[in-house]
Design a protein around this nucleic acid. Structure first.
Lengths: 155, 155
DNA sequence: TTCTATGCAAATGGTTTGCAGTCTA
DNA sequence: TAGACTGCAAACCATTTGCATAGAA
């Protein structure tokens, strides 16, 4: 269950391997606690909190959780998701995708990504109007995922 | 200096009055500490931090700063700005504008608003593709304001 | 063996809460 | 006067840091 072979889907195996690979590429070591964290991360699916990750990885110190999380961010293996209420969640970066955004379910917390950045036009005009040299942007979309909509509809 | 008459511009006076008005409309009282905070807020211009507001309002307790800040947010008189690094800033809501976004200078921290939400098309397609019922979104743009660009260019 | 990574616990930064006293409407 | 508001200090929560130890290369 915690190993990297088990009954996992090919996707999750690849994901874990990718994570380890990213760490190695960044010049970091693959240690037991890190392996456990990576495993927990992919077991938790599309989104997780630092707190949840710590809870799902007993025996791993809190500091290590945060240190590893920061490492994974540097290596761009995971990214932060800003929730509606300002809370932070984390998410596996999809296939090392570079720039992308999140659409978050405000009920169940599910996170999906989208890369289509049709705001380039908007940004260009914004740059023209404000005189800014635009570097980046942060776009998070909030709503109800289809599952939650169904559940609510039934209730 | 702390009063509402002083050498202030008409704009800032109006702003302060608007703030007081919003508080009243929300069923809240206008007290001395609050008056001081409102005054500090408009004196600080387009953006400020809780910390800065507290510093600019000596004699007003930290708790009151945060309580008032929360109040002003509820009344939609000020809004939060998420900085590049995840830090929070606050900003006067421009003319009670409803939905709007921020463009933040990553060097000097200046904040400007823009309301042009040309992402409706993007959001619509996103809704279609993901099955989400989209409620809101958060868009923050980061870059260098024209002044900072000039300064850097000169250096 | 060397140097990175870990765990613990204490420190931190930012924000919130409890409470008795103060002030506004 | 009644109840909202305040200041203080303590409580909180999430994250970070110091340090001695354990582990990977």
């Amino acid at each position: 269950m915690t190993g990297s072979g088990g009954g996992q889907t090919i996707d999750s195996m690849v994901t874990t391997d990718l994570l380890e690979h990213e760490l190695l590429r960044g010049g970091h070591r693959i240690t037991e606690p890190r392996r456990r964290l990576l495993s927990s991360i992919q077991a938790m699916g599309d989104h997780f909190t630092a707190e949840g990750l710590a809870a799902a990885s007993p025996g791993v110190g809190r500091a290590t959780v945060f240190r590893t999380l920061k490492l994974l961010q540097e290596v761009e293996a995971v990214c932060q998701v800003v929730l509606d209420d300002g809370t932070l969640q984390y998410r596996l970066t999809p296939n090392n995708a570079g720039h992308h955004h999140h659409i978050v379910c405000s009920r169940c917390g599910a996170v999906n990504d989208f890369a289509s950045c049709d705001i380039q036009g908007l940004l260009a005009e914004l740059a023209r109007r404000t005189g800014y040299d635009i570097e980046t942007h942060r776009l998070e979309v909030y709503g109800r995922c289809s599952e939650c909509r169904e559940e609510l509809g039934r209730a």
